[in-house]
Amino acid sequence: SKTSNTIRVFLPNKQRTVVNVRNGMSLHDCLMKALKVRG
């Protein structure tokens, strides 16, 4: 089974995003990807 960790990230202006960290990806990469999608 694939394991994925879901991390809630609290952003300024009362924004919130959820990042799924996959195996083999660093938290930083996942964060940058999530913020790019939002931006």
Rank of each mutant, 00 (worst) to 15 (best):
P12A: 03
D29E: 09
L31V: 05
A34P: 14
K33T: 03
N5V: 10
N20H: 06
G24C: 13
K36M: 12
R8P: 01
T6R: 05
V21L: 05
C30S: 14
L31P: 00
H28S: 07
G39V: 04
V37G: 01
L31M: 05
S26R: 07
R8C: 02
K36E: 04
S26T: 11
G24S: 15
Q15E: 05
V37E: 00
S1P: 15
V18I: 07
R16H: 15
V18F: 04
V9A: 15
T17R: 10
V21F: 10
N20Y: 07
T17P: 01
R16L: 03
H28R: 12
K2V: 09
T17S: 15
K14I: 06
V9T: 10
L35R: 01
R22F: 07
M32K: 13
C30G: 07
N20I: 14
K33L: 10
V19T: 08
Q15K: 06
R38S: 04
N13I: 03
N23C: 12
V18L: 02
R38H: 01
S1Q: 13
N20E: 10
I7N: 01
T3S: 06
R8L: 05
H28C: 14
F10S: 05
H28P: 02
R22L: 05
S26I: 07
K2R: 11
V21S: 10
T6K: 02
K36S: 10
G39C: 10
K36R: 13
I7M: 06
L31R: 01
V18A: 03
R22H: 08
F10C: 03
S26C: 08
Q15L: 00
K14S: 10
G39A: 06
K14W: 10
S1L: 14
N5H: 08
K14E: 09
K36I: 05
M25V: 15
V19L: 14
S26D: 06
D29V: 07
K14N: 09
I7F: 06
V18G: 01
K2T: 07
N5T: 14
K14R: 08
A34S: 10
V18E: 07
L35P: 00
M32T: 13
M25K: 15
S1R: 13
C30W: 02
K33E: 01
L31T: 10
S26H: 10
K36N: 12
R22P: 12
M25T: 15
N13Y: 14
R22S: 04
F10T: 10
L31A: 10
K14T: 04
L35M: 14
I7T: 02
M25E: 07
I7S: 02
K36T: 08
V19G: 02
N13D: 08
N13C: 12
P12L: 02
L11V: 02
N13S: 05
P12Q: 03
T6S: 05
V19I: 14
M32S: 10
N23H: 12
G24R: 14
D29A: 08
R16C: 01
V37W: 14
A34E: 06
I7V: 06
N23S: 13
N20T: 06
S26N: 08
S1A: 10
Q15H: 01
L31Q: 00
R16P: 02
N20S: 08
K14Q: 09
L27P: 00
G24Y: 10
V21E: 01
M32I: 12
F10V: 03
V9M: 01
S4V: 10
